[in-house]
Amino acid sequence: MEERPFNDTSYEQFLKELRIMGSKCKKCGALALPPRPICISCFGGEMEWVEFKGRGRLAAFTSITVAPPYMAKEGFGRNNPYVVGVVELDEGVKTVARIIGVDAKNPSQIKVGTPLEAEFLERGDGPEKKTILAFKP
């Protein structure tokens, strides 16, 4: 694990292993998710891996009715909106992710501040297989 570079590719590989992995700056302790090769707090370049528990609260969200092609392929659109959000994790960093288990057709009822936990969604098969980070109440 320690051998992997602190970048987006490693982040995605870890997601496939159902782990939310980010970086921690050895110099100042700043956390980053996805991992960063350069610390944006102190510009340090020495990192270590840190695993996030996958618990947090909803900081912002949207329910999307006009879906881009790659989401339309999953069946989302005008009659089947989906929710994406910004989740503030207990560790203090934010991540953008799909929000499931909420009523996308009644977004006015979705509340910022709702406690959430991570769930891994798998889409596609074989080499096309992707693991998507989602959160649910």
Binding site: I64, V66, A67, P68, V84, A97
Partner: peptide
């Protein structure tokens, strides 16, 4: 994550 342009501003 599935955001569209209006989606980011919506959030």
């Amino acid at each position: 994550a599935g955001y569209t342009f209006p989606g980011v501003f919506g959030a």
